[in-house]
Design a protein around this nucleic acid. Structure first.
Length: 337
DNA sequence: CGCATCCCCTGCCTGC
DNA sequence: TGCAGGCAGGGGATGC
């Protein structure tokens, strides 16, 4: 499900449960997701402490005691559910939401966008898993086991972190921590959009002479890491740039960035920052009844809004959906040029 | 190298 | 109510 803001929100949810904690057991319930699980995956994690829970682009990067790193990707439909041991949340301010002992997902309609209805929480937190704690492995636990629960981490403190992924486009792989920066999945990534390495000059240098359109350019993780279909659409809308514009128009003949590139960087930063803030703020509100972790879906300006009036003040345009490289783009043809 | 196309998989919504 | 078709937040593999 995730683009960068969702992965960052998940990371922030997982960190206090996993970082510094020892994994006492790992359940792996199928041989693979998108890729095979690591060799001897359960044995390699059991008994070891998790040292760090970081993120790079859309990857969760988990440092494991003993010099290995677990790289996880949520694909299109991956989610984590946290279940704390024993009753109410012991970490006020983070854990928000009880999925219910039957595992029923919160049934909210507020998280739907247009025709698309995704699960509007990437990270569920269940604070009352008494029967899982007490139950013998097997029967009791199966009461809570959801379809497509593929991996369960058990911590020494009695918490469980369950990975669920219906489409199985996600994956978990391990690498030597020393080799992490050279890992094929990590090494070629462009700069983090919220870091100092992203600036107009970088985009201009990457885009100069490129014939691909801006949409494809921004989706290419080698140019900039962490954007996906939604936030590319949203950032281009904020910048007033058409997704069909040539990427090369971010650079002048001199190679310097155009004013468009400056606008684009500002737009990317603002949309991601606000999306992360939205996820984070609802994570903190543990009284929120429906358990929705907010995210930014409520605030999309163009994504999923085909046929609706453009949100730009005084713009009379209508949001259109087009297909680029087999995927939907949403734009206002009137104010995105 | 750049670029386009296809594919992995399941679930949900739409229209007939 | 059933069923077929389209679509979905990602990204790797392949072919030109």
């Amino acid at each position: 499900m995730p683009e960068l803001p969702e992965v960052e929100t998940v990371r922030r949810g997982l960190q206090p449960v996993l970082e510094g904690r020892r994994i006492v057991k790992l359940e792996q319930r199928r041989p693979d997701l998108r890729f095979p699980f690591p060799e001897n995956f359960p044995e390699r994690l059991a008994g070891r402490r998790i040292e760090t829970v970081n993120r790079r682009s859309k990857y969760l990067v988990v440092g494991i005691e003993g010099g290995e790193t677990l790289i996880m990707h949520l694909g299109m439909s991956g989610r984590f559910t946290i279940a704390l041991a024993g009753g109410p949340a012991t970490m006020p301010g983070l854990f928000t939401h009880d999925t219910g002992l039957n595992g029923a997902q919160p049934n909210t309609t507020s998280g739907s966008v247009g025709k698309n209805r995704w699960p509007n929480t990437t990270l569920h937190v269940n604070t009352s898993l008494r029967s899982v704690e007490q139950g013998s492995v097997g029967q009791q636990q199966n009461q809570h086991q959801q379809k497509h629960d593929h991996v369960v981490f058990h911590t020494e403190e009695g918490a469980t972190v369950t990975y669920n992924d219906p489409r199985r486009f996600g994956f978990m792989v391990m690498t030597a921590t020393a080799d992490l920066q050279n890992h094929p999945l990590i090494g070629g990534l462009g700069p983090e959009p919220l870091g100092n390495a992203l600036h107009a000059g970088h985009l201009a240098a990457r885009a100069a002479g490129r014939t691909v359109d801006l949409k494809a350019f921004l989706m290419d993780q080698r140019n900039i890491a962490g954007l996906g279909n939604i936030y590319v659409c949203e950032a281009l809308f904020r910048a007033g740039l058409s997704p069909q514009r040539a990427a090369s128009s971010l650079a002048r003949k001199s190679g310097n960035p155009t004013e468009r590139a400056e606008r684009l960087v500002t737009a990317i930063r603002s949309v991601l920052t606000q999306a992360i803030a939205a996820g984070g703020s609802s994570l903190r509100d543990y009284r929120q009844a429906d358990g929705a972790l907010g995210y930014f879906q409520h605030s999309f300006s163009v994504y999923g809004r085909e046929g609706e009036p453009c949100a730009t003040p005084a713009c009379r345009g209508t949001v259109r959906r087009i297909v680029q490289a087999g995927r939907s783009s949403f734009l206002c043809p009137a104010c995105q040029r």
